[in-house]
C-alpha cells in the first residue's frame, strides 16, 4: 500500500493543464479528489509517472445557471453540490445521489468531474448524468468539444477522453418543474459501491407516466440507460404488472460481475427491484 515514485505538477490554468497532459502523454494522470486514483496508486495498480493536480486551476469550480441549463465545474466537490441552493431547486436528484456517495469526509474531497471522468462502473454520477441527458465539456490540445454523457462511456475505465483532454464542466438541462425523481441504491455499507442502483426521472400527466428515463449503476462495465424499461412505463400508472415488466426489461440489459456483493443472478434481481422502487418513489414525488 505504498505508491511508486511520481512527479507532481500543479498548473494554474486549463491551458497549462492540457499542455502538461498532452506533452507528458500516457504516463500523466490528472488528479482531482484522488479517491479513486490514489488508492490505485497505493496498490501500484496505477503507476503514473506524473500527477497533474487540478486544485490550482482557476475556473474549474462552481455551479451556475445558464438559461435552461445548470453548468457545474468539474472540480466542484460532492459537498459543494449538496450545499448548493441552485442544485436543490433545479436538480434535486443530484443531491439525493451525492448523499449516497461514501461519507462526508470523502464528499468534501471527491469531485463530480473525477466521479464522471474516471469511467469506474461503480461510480454513481455517470448513470445519473446519462439519465439527466448531461453533456461534458472537454478541453484538449485541439481545442474544446462537448460529448453527451450517453456517448462518453466505452468500457470499465475507458471513456471518450482523448489523450491530453480534460473534462472541465458538466452541463445539465434542468428537468421540467414538477418532475419526479429517485436514485435507489443498494449497498452493503456506507462507503461501498452499489450492489445495484437505479436513477429515474419522470413526469406524470393525469396519473400516468408522461416521460421517463431510467439509468443503471454498477450493473455492467459502463453505466446503462434502460430505454426499454422506461418505455414500458409510459402511459401507465405504474401498476404492479407494469413495474415487473419494467424490471424485467432493465434486467435484460444488465451484465454485472459476480463479486463479494453477490452472484450475477442476485445483482440482476436487485437491479430490477431498484428500478421498481425508483419508479414508484419518483412517481410519488412528481406533481
Amino acid at each position: 500500500m505504498i505508491p511508486g515514485p511520481f512527479s507532481y505538477h500543479r498548473p494554474a490554468t486549463v491551458a497549462d493543464a492540457v499542455k502538461l497532459l498532452s506533452t507528458l502523454g500516457d504516463e500523466a494522470r490528472p488528479l482531482a479528489g484522488g479517491h479513486s486514483l490514489v488508492p490505485m496508486m497505493k496498490l501500484r495498480l496505477a503507476t503514473p509517472e506524473h500527477l497533474v493536480d487540478l486544485h490550482g486551476v482557476a475556473g474549474l469550480k462552481g455551479i451556475r445557471r445558464d438559461g435552461g441549463k445548470v453548468v457545474i465545474g468539474a472540480m466542484t466537490t460532492q459537498h459543494e453540490l449538496l450545499a448548493s441552493d441552485e442544485i436543490a431547486k433545479s436538480i434535486p436528484i443530484l443531491q439525493e445521489t451525492a448523499l449516497l456517495i461514501a461519507d462526508p469526509q470523502v464528499r468534501y474531497r471527491g469531485t463530480i468531474g473525477g466521479n464522471i471522468a474516471n469511467g469506474d462502473p461503480g461510480n454513481d454520477m455517470p448513470a445519473l448524468m446519462m439519465t439527466l441527458g448531461a453533456t461534458y465539456r472537454l478541453e484538449g490540445p485541439q481545442g474544446g468539444r462537448e460529448v453527451a454523457a450517453a456517448d462518453f462511456y466505452q468500457g470499465a475505465y475507458f471513456t471518450a477522453i482523448e489523450p491530453g483532454e480534460l473534462v472541465t464542466a458538466i452541463s445539465i438541462a434542468v428537468p421540467p418543474a414538477g418532475h419526479g425523481h429517485a436514485y435507489e441504491k443498494l449497498k452493503r455499507k456506507v462507503g461501498d459501491y452499489a450492489t445495484a442502483a437505479a436513477a429515474v426521472i419522470l413526469t406524470m400527466s393525469g396519473g400516468k407516466v408522461a416521460t421517463c428515463t431510467v439509468g443503471l449503476t454498477n450493473l455492467s462495465e459502463t453505466p446503462l440507460l434502460a430505454d426499454a424499461a422506461a418505455k414500458a412505463v409510459i402511459g401507465t400508472s405504474l401498476d404492479p404488472a407494469t413495474l415487473k415488466k419494467a424490471a424485467a426489461a432493465a434486467e435484460a440489459i444488465m451484465v454485472p460481475a459476480a463479486d463479494a456483493r453477490g452472484p450475477v443472478e442476485y445483482r440482476k434481481h436487485v437491479g430490477g427491484i431498484m428500478v421498481m422502487r425508483a419508479l414508484q418513489r419518483a412517481a410519488a414525488k412528481a406533481a
Binding site: 452493503r188 450492489t195 456483493r261 452472484p263 442476485y266 434481481h269 436487485v270
Partner: peptide, 8 residues
C-alpha cells in the same frame, strides 16, 4: 448472513 445470502 449478508444480503445476497439472505436472498439466496
Amino acid at each position: 448472513h449478508d444480503f445476497w445470502r439472505n436472498w439466496q
